[in-house]
């Protein structure tokens, strides 16, 4: 079996950081969780990350700020946004800027798998 792909999770919400990596590992991915965009950028896992699951609304740098920063650094990591605000207008905005998918919390296991597959096929 090939080396497991790393999926990084950036979310300020602790319950997400606890639960989502466990599920990702059950899916068979390597998973790392970060509490902020700044923490992720400083982590050294950018190169290995095959897919980024990114919260939009966070204190400090928002998910979109991080997307911009990665674009600026030419880091082409496929991004799956997740958001709890339920603001529908944000989805077309982030997709236009290159995100693979935008999921609204709470999302189903199936939706998450679909997004991950799409992300990994892009890469």
């Amino acid at each position: 079996m090939a080396k497991r792909s790393l999926v990084s999770v950036v979310d300020d919400d602790e319950s997400v950081r606890e639960s989502l990596p466990d599920l990702l590992r059950e899916f068979g991915f390597e998973a790392k969780a970060f509490a902020s965009a700044e923490e992720f950028l400083a982590s050294g896992y950018l190169e290995q990350t095959r897919c980024l699951i990114l919260d939009i609304a966070m204190p400090g740098m928002s998910g979109q700020d991080l997307q911009e920063e990665l674009t600026r650094r030419r880091q082409k990591i496929p991004i799956v946004f997740i958001t709890a605000t339920g603001d529908e207008t944000v989805r077309p905005l982030v997709l236009e800027r290159g995100a693979v998918e935008c999921l609204f919390k709470p999302f189903s296991e199936k939706a998450l798998l679909g997004a991950l597959n799409a992300a990994l096929s892009v890469a």
Binding site: D13, E26, P106, E109
Partner: peptide
């Protein structure tokens, strides 16, 4: 208000679903 309520409720709901799936 709606956004705030949605955010507050969706966060734990999201956790519940993910944990249950896991």
């Amino acid at each position: 208000l709606t956004a705030s309520i949605a955010h507050e409720v969706n966060q734990p709901l999201s956790g519940i679903i993910t944990n249950a799936s896991t």
